[in-house]
């Protein structure tokens, strides 16, 4: 992250919140920035560990990814897929218009 020196400020919180579609009240931006900075500096402590010669860990478990054969085994469950949709029509999800 390019912000590790400056830390997080209210503007960055506002931007991340918007990208994540989260609503954050104006008066919560600065306190959230403080909290995030606290978390980040706590994580920074990991930088003190000497990892010279240790291969980067890429996942939490050291096993190979399970793979599937290319066979159709699923689908055909439209009722389940659409069950929670607020609005459907002719088998489609119907949502507010997403283009002008």
């Amino acid at each position: 992250m390019s912000n590790e020196n400056k830390g997080v400020d209210a503007e960055i919180v506002r931007k991340i919140a918007r990208l994540s579609r989260l609503h954050v009240d104006e008066d919560r931006l600065a306190p959230l920035a403080d909290e995030l900075n606290g978390i980040l500096s706590w994580i920074e402590m990991l930088g003190e560990v000497d990892v010279k010669g240790v291969e980067p860990m890429t996942s939490a478990v050291a096993i190979d990814a399970p793979l599937r054969a290319d066979v159709v085994t699923d689908g055909g469950v439209r009722d389940k897929v659409l069950a929670n949709a607020p609005k459907t029509e002719a088998g489609y999800f119907v949502v507010p218009r997403s283009v002008e």
Binding site: V71, V72, G75, V77, R78, V81, L82
Partner: peptide, 19 residues
Amino acid sequence: FSGAATEYGAEPNTQVSLV
């Protein structure tokens, strides 16, 4: 990432797994 079919031209949302 799922076992749903990829065939072109199917009825809407019939080739959708819960994944």
